[in-house]
């Protein structure tokens, strides 16, 4: 396990070494929070509904998603540049290698979301709460689960630019079909029921709702949401484990991708 942790550590460090990507991501997320959130609050907040406090948890979860999803880019680079082949020569089991990548994704997402939460807490004091701390392990599991989706993309994108095209498409679809930017009640009249189900089951929606529960005060429905979020994340995590096992097994069959 110690060796797998070393791989997780070096994989995670690569995410934080990609400084311009990181700076761009943080800038986009903070811009979303402060510009979109504030402007839209002025335009569409009604009664007790405050768009800023609605939107910011969504931005934090989006940040978590993008940071977690970056593991797919790293694995893709590893596959195409031969670093994954190098990992296969190290005394680490196949499962160890798989968990190392998922763990680094989980940590990357959780750390990144943590940074955004600290920034957001300056404007939303409710985020400074023990419930937020209690959410950290849940967000970590969510982050690992979301990495499972990246793993599936790695499985189906063998070489070249295909991974990045797939990733872009999936990220856009997942953010669009979630309650990150709008409450589900707003679209229930427009979208067909199956799409509403997709939006509800979308782990990004569930993550954002969990954070909103903290902002709005915890409730019994919040606990249910958390359970649902953890269950969804675990399902995705299992998918990720299976996908990465396939990716590295195939690498041993076909050589460099």
């Amino acid at each position: 396990m110690g060796r797998a942790l070393q791989i997780a550590r070096v994989d995670l460090s690569y995410f934080f070494r990609t400084k311009w990507l990181l700076a761009t991501l943080i800038a986009l997320n903070i811009t979303d929070m402060l510009v979109v959130g504030v402007v839209y609050r002025g335009m569409i907040s009604q009664g007790t509904f405050d768009y800023f406090t609605f939107f910011v948890p969504g931005v934090i979860v989006t940040g978590l998603f993008f940071a977690s999803f970056d593991v797919g880019r790293r694995v893709h680079l590893g596959l195409t540049e031969g670093v994954s082949q190098y990992y296969l020569t190290l005394p680490v089991s196949l499962n160890g290698l798989v968990w190392a990548h998922l763990l680094s994704a989980g940590l990357g997402g959780a750390i990144y979301a943590g940074i955004l939460t600290v920034v957001a807490a300056a404007f939303i004091p409710q985020l400074v709460s023990v419930y937020t701390l209690a959410l950290i392990p849940v967000m970590f599991v969510l982050s690992m689960g979301l990495a499972g989706i990246a793993a599936v993309l790695n499985l189906f994108s063998k070489a070249g630019e295909r991974y990045f095209v797939f990733a872009e498409g999936v990220q856009t679809a997942m953010v669009s079909l979630s309650t990150i930017a709008y409450p589900i009640s707003l679209v229930s009249g427009f979208f067909p029921s199956y799409l509403l189900t997709v939006i509800e089951l979308n782990p990004l929606s569930q993550g954002a709702e969990a954070l909103r529960t903290v902002v709005n005060g915890s409730s019994a429905s919040g606990a249910f949401n958390l359970l649902s979020l953890v269950a969804t994340s675990i399902v995705l995590l299992v998918v990720g484990v299976v996908a990465y096992r396939h990716v590295f097994t195939r690498l041993r069959e076909v050589g460099k991708i």
Partner: peptide, 15 residues
């Protein structure tokens, strides 16, 4: 028991 030095160097660009 074994170690390999690959034909093409293996490493992430930024490391």
């Amino acid at each position: 028991s074994i170690g390999i030095s690959f034909q093409e160097p293996r490493g992430f660009w930024r490391h």
